[in-house]
């Protein structure tokens, strides 16, 4: 199924959960924050959130800034 992750279209296995997606990006869950369809996902919900076709996911992390 198709997802939009950080503005890019990606194919993932149907039934992919958010926790798996974050891991597939090489990120530890406590180093990211996630929005699904522009709504913040609490970290405690990563495990239970199963992504659906055409979901828009934002996965952000910390970078240097002023």
């Amino acid at each position: 199924m198709k997802l939009r992750i950080n503005g890019e279209e990606r194919d993932v296995v149907p039934g992919t959960g958010l926790e798996e997606l974050v891991a597939a990006l090489g990120m530890a869950p406590d180093r990211v924050a996630v929005e699904c369809n522009r709504v913040l996902v609490r970290r405690t919900e990563y495990e239970s959130l199963v992504l659906e076709e055409n979901d828009e996911v934002e996965v952000v992390t910390l970078v240097g800034g002023g």
């Binding site: 992750i5 950080n6 503005g7 890019e8 990606r10 990006l25 090489g26 990120m27 180093r31 990211v32 924050a33 934002e58 996965v59 952000v60 992390t61 910390l62 970078v63 240097g64 800034g65 002023g66």
Partner: peptide, 19 residues
């Protein structure tokens, strides 16, 4: 110290992390 928030790069390995 201040920090910013940006999208994780999908195509690059994370590399060293600010934190």
């Amino acid at each position: 110290v201040t920090v910013a928030l940006r999208r994780v790069n999908l195509d690059r390995d994370a590399g060293p992390a600010l934190l």
